[in-house]
Design a protein around this nucleic acid. Structure first.
Lengths: 228, 228
DNA sequence: GAAATAGTGTCTTTGAGACAGTATTTA
DNA sequence: TAAATACTGTCTCAAAGACACTATTTC
């Protein structure tokens, strides 16, 4: 392979969760140059014998301290502008992860400096490298995917109420949805959610049925934002 | 950069067009090992100082023999399984291109062996490397995007009729659409198409208005396949 | 009981799909 | 004139949005 130009390849992660009614992204403070002290997306170099998804899963586990995240992980895109890393030619494969709010505080191997930051508080053009752009693309992808896939449930624990699911939509889209129409829509869309058979207890108001994710991968008809 | 694992990076292209009422993909016959003699997606190595989209545009120009393709080009995904290329660790960034049927036969620098192959005639598991998977992903992406974006027009020349646009949908989705409802839908969706003011001449039947692409980037409401 | 939250019923409007019917060309 | 294709009108049905109403809990 000596005849081909040598690149370094990294895996960077846009890890999103919904906590305290805000959409938050996992960021780390860089401890070494370049961009020392700046916020960045978590990530790292891909091993020469490591598959790309494996590298993403490994980084996610290292940063969140959780072995199997139970959320959703998908490839977001690849960013490789020649000047994006002052150390040389580094191409990064970016991944989008959607996780339920983690009860355990983030504390893994590399996770000392990792923090959940509400996306509204991420200062413009303040992330290292081209991570602003990657984060923006990840947010756009997540918002779009809530419309036509059941991925909102990836932000929820294994069992959740319709109201919890609605909060996810309202938080990610920053809108209000009619609870009654939302309920009919979610329970009426085949394969979106499945009743567990039990209900919540101890909360204010009438107990709510618990649901888990259904088998659908695509929602028909889709959930609608009002961009019309 | 000596401390980081060295990868080779390639750009591979899924180039689609609609010709003779069939969806066709541009394939090349490999002239050198590995996979010598097998069909493959067009592509090649990314230069060490070359931006990723530039590499895709360059490969597209080389393979189609056209300088500015006027169609659509977007990143499809990145494929980097350790065993995918026997020459070593090669990560490929795959791109999806949608082009109008090219009046000029394919004949560029590297294009001697390039051919349009109807996607229905691409034998399963017969492409080099993991190009079967990449092609399948490209087809799925193209089919999905016709629903909620105006990208069908990328398969048409700069000026086209509603019937031409409908043929694109029917070909890519392999369905029949009602010409009358399709006409109302397309002309009634804001920003999808704009009337040029002229009409076709010389064809059988009533002349059809010519349209060009409108400014919309997302279709609301979307065009619908009957997957329900 | 009041307040809160879950869930149902129903009305209105919008848009998709079916398809009759009209318009304008070529052969 | 017949055939072909472009386009319009209209009906029916499904689903979105508004919102009154009922159900079941905690305080």
């Amino acid at each position: 392979m000596a005849e081909y130009p040598p690149f370094a390849v990294t895996a960077d992660l846009v890890v999103l969760t919904v906590r305290a009614d805000e959409l938050a992204v996992l960021l780390v403070r860089r401890g070494i140059p370049p961009y020392e002290g700046a916020w960045a997306l978590p990530g790292g170099f891909v091993g020469i014998d490591e598959d790309l998804p494996d590298a993403a899963v490994r980084e996610l586990a290292e940063e969140t301290g959780l072995p199997e995240p139970a959320g959703h992980l998908e490839q977001l895109g690849t960013y490789g502008h020649p000047g994006r890393d002052p150390r040389g030619r580094v191409v990064t494969v970016a991944w989008l992860a959607l996780l339920p709010d983690l009860p355990t505080p983030v504390a893994g191997t590399d996770a000392a400096a990792a923090e959940w930051v509400p996306v509204t508080k991420v200062a413009r053009d303040r992330l290292a490298f081209d991570h602003d752009r990657i984060l923006a693309d990840g947010l756009e992808r997540a918002r779009a995917k809530l419309e036509y896939t059941p991925l909102a449930a990836a932000f929820c624990p294994p069992e959740f109420t319709v109201a919890q699911l609605r909060t996810v939509y309202e938080t990610v889209w920053d809108t209000r949805l009619d609870p009654r129409n939302f309920h009919r829509k979610v329970t009426g869309t085949p394969g979106f959610v499945e009743p567990v058979g039990r209900s919540t207890e101890g909360d204010r108001g009438r107990p709510a049925q618990l649901f888990r994710r259904g088998p659908a991968t695509l929602l028909h008809p889709p959930m609608l934002r009002q961009h019309r």
